[in-house]
């Protein structure tokens, strides 16, 4: 009944197995979104596609950035740039838990030896105006994934509800591959002619970004970028739905949402530079949330968002 699965040998093999597992379960395997984001949820394939009634099913790797987590490449388990693996299925299938457990088997976790637990953890993203209920999934006491049933996104009730799975790839890989120091784990096949570790790929850049994030980034320029992104987002959404040039109805939800993503990332950078006070913090988060809500409002006016002309 329980198939024995070989242990993966590298970070990339874990990603490849997840890709093929979820492809086998019918997900569209997407590529990362081409912008700086704080987490996989920001990908429009999750945020926007969880809105409206159109069914959706996707899986993808999303490189993510959290400037405040920078440790100059010195930490064994914290990087300002890291990877999340994201699965989003709408409506959430009744066997989503079983599908998820299957993915753990696929990357070599033997359910007969490990203790897998679903521990209450409600998810909330104040910047996206989103929340959901679910769990963090524990494997032998370690959080390996976040499992969420989206209830609201961008201020809109989700109906139907999307099921979202987020795997923190570095931590999961360190566990599966048996490494305490993430920088030392093999990125590609350790028997390859040119074996590379995770650290070979990222460690130096981590130091560079940490220095820039914490001390060098020009805060005046960033502040201006924030204001510009905020203004552009609003301007895009102010345009009439009917395009005067083509004569077609084109609601520009996604270009506007790009500006929202930008503003969110710039806020994270400003936060890392330590120029945002505790009281201002809430105000900034509120401003990004306003953008996210506007974009959500626009998305439900598109065909993908369930708008019927």
């Amino acid at each position: 009944m329980e198939q024995t699965v070989t242990k993966p040998k590298s970070f990339q093999e874990i990603i490849l197995r997840l890709q093929s597992y979820w492809a086998g379960k019918g997900c569209a395997v997407l590529q990362p979104y081409d912008m700086e984001v704080g987490a996989g949820t920001f990908h429009p394939a999750t945020t926007l596609r969880s809105l409206g009634s159109t069914p959706w099913s996707a899986a993808y790797v999303q490189p993510s950035r959290r400037p405040t987590d920078g440790r100059y490449g010195d930490s064994p388990n914290r990087w300002q740039h890291y990877y999340q693996y994201q699965v989003i299925i709408k409506p959430s299938p009744p066997d989503l838990q079983e599908l998820y457990l299957g993915s753990l088997r696929a990357i070599g976790i033997d359910m007969e030896l490990h203790d897998i637990r679903f521990v209450e953890d409600d998810w909330e993203s104040p910047t996206l105006g989103a929340w959901g209920l679910g769990w963090e999934v524990w494997c032998d006491g370690m959080e390996v994934s976040q499992f969420t049933y989206f209830q609201q996104v961008g201020g809109h009730d989700c109906h139907p509800v999307s099921g979202e799975l987020t795997y923190g790839l570095e931590r999961l890989a360190m566990y599966v591959l048996g490494y305490d120091d993430g920088n030392a784990m093999p990125f590609n096949d350790p028997d390859a002619p040119i074996p590379l570790t995770y650290g070979d790929v990222f460690q130096e850049a981590e130091a560079q970004y940490a220095r820039w994030n914490f001390d060098v980034a020009d805060t005046d320029v960033l502040l201006q970028h924030f204001i510009d992104a905020e203004a552009e987002c609003a301007r895009i959404l102010e345009q009439p739905a009917d395009d005067p040039k083509t004569g077609r109805r084109i609601v520009m939800a996604q270009p506007a949402y790009d500006q929202c993503i930008k503003a969110s990332h710039i806020f994270n950078l400003l936060d890392a530079r330590g120029v945002i006070s505790v009281t201002e913090r809430q105000a900034y988060i509120g401003r990004v949330r306003t953008l996210a809500k506007m974009c959500a409002d626009a998305f439900v006016q598109t065909k993908a968002g369930g708008f019927a002309a």
Partner: peptide, 23 residues
Amino acid sequence: VANRDTADQGATILAGNQKVLSA
């Protein structure tokens, strides 16, 4: 407190928990 018996009497589970605790 684990949620299951295992063939190795919980050795893998305990080792995992220990590792998480150390981190």
